[in-house]
Design a protein around this nucleic acid. Structure first.
Length: 103
DNA sequence: CACATGACTATCC
DNA sequence: TGGATAGCCATGT
């Protein structure tokens, strides 16, 4: 499976009210976080990819969000039940492992 | 085929 | 503790 499809698959497996980090996706896809972010920004798989549930390792919202702005992403997550600490995501809202691994 | 870029992460000052 | 710089990997030109 290509890194691209791999990342998309994992992002789609993120349960509602939960979030993940680029680093986690990178590890699951056996790649680097840079690639994960680049792929997600390239094109959310037909809006089926909840890229708004993907945040940085620092729990902060990603920069250059493509849905209208970081503020939008935060509100979307809050509506899904994700707790927020100021401009960061609550650590307890993270999914340690998304569904199943690729390999 | 080689160079440049990027939703990032980690280290240094 | 916080901001800036370097490193990394895949994709695109």
């Amino acid at each position: 499976m290509n890194t691209q499809e791999c990342v998309y698959s994992h992002v789609r497996k993120i349960p509602k009210g939960k979030v993940t980090t680029y680093k986690a996706l990178a590890l699951l896809c056996d790649t680097s976080p840079r690639v994960v972010g680049k792929i997600l920004h390239h094109n959310p798989n037909g809006s089926k990819t909840p890229c708004h549930r993907v945040v940085r390792s620092d729990c902060t919202i990603a920069s250059g969000y493509a849905f209208g702005g970081p503020g939008i992403q935060r509100e979307m997550l809050e509506k899904e039940g994700v707790k927020f600490e100021k401009n960061k995501v609550a650590t307890h809202s993270f999914t340690s492992a998304i569904g199943s691994s690729v390999k």
